[in-house]
Amino acid sequence: MHHGWSHLQAGRLKMLLADFHHPVSYEMALQYPHRALIAPRVRVTLEYLLEAFAAREESHVPLQALGRYGA
């Protein structure tokens, strides 16, 4: 859904069979060593990923908002 969000908003894409698919919310988990053992490069990568995902609108689309894009 993340890749298609801008196309849904622009009307270039419609959801099909939405009544037969029941999406669930999901979370992404980043696993890394204990904070006392974390390498600086891993810490920088984690900080970058958290910031990048937080800044993207499509990462925060509530499932209820998808209903208006059905065909």
Rank of each mutant, 00 (worst) to 15 (best):
G4S: 15
L30G: 12
R41A: 14
G67T: 10
M15S: 10
A71Y: 04
S25L: 03
P23I: 02
W5R: 01
T45W: 13
Q31A: 13
L8N: 06
A10G: 14
R12N: 11
P40S: 09
A18F: 03
R12P: 01
S25Q: 11
L16I: 06
L50Y: 08
H2Y: 05
A52S: 12
D19N: 07
L63W: 01
P40F: 05
S59Q: 09
H22F: 07
H3A: 09
G11C: 05
M1G: 13
R43W: 08
S59N: 15
H34I: 03
A18M: 00
P40G: 08
H2Q: 12
L13V: 02
R41N: 08
Q31P: 04
E27G: 11
D19G: 04
S6K: 10
R43D: 10
R68I: 02
E51K: 10
P33H: 04
G70M: 05
P33W: 02
Y32F: 12
Q31F: 10
L8R: 00
S25K: 02
Q64V: 03
M1F: 08
Y26G: 13
E27A: 14
R12L: 02
V61D: 04
S6C: 09
E58F: 00
P33E: 01
I38Q: 11
D19A: 07
Q64S: 15
H60D: 04
H60V: 01
L50G: 14
L17K: 10
L66P: 02
A65W: 07
P40C: 02
A55Q: 14
G67F: 06
A54M: 01
H22I: 05
A71R: 07
A39K: 13
L17H: 14
L13W: 07
P62E: 00
A54N: 11
P23T: 01
G70Q: 14
A54C: 04
A52V: 10
A55R: 12
R12M: 00
P40R: 09
A18K: 02
L63N: 05
V42A: 12
Y69F: 15
H7Q: 10
L30V: 09
E47T: 12
Y32K: 04
S25A: 12
D19Y: 03
A55V: 04
M15W: 03
H21L: 08
L49P: 08
L66V: 01
R41I: 06
E27F: 05
Q64A: 15
W5Q: 00
Q31N: 08
R43V: 04
R56K: 12
Y48I: 00
R43L: 09
L50F: 11
E57M: 02
F53P: 00
A10Q: 08
E51V: 02
E27P: 01
G70T: 15
L16D: 13
S59Y: 08
L49W: 14
H21A: 11
W5E: 01
H3E: 10
E57H: 06
A18G: 15
Y48W: 11
A55C: 09
I38D: 00
R68D: 11
A10R: 05
A55M: 03
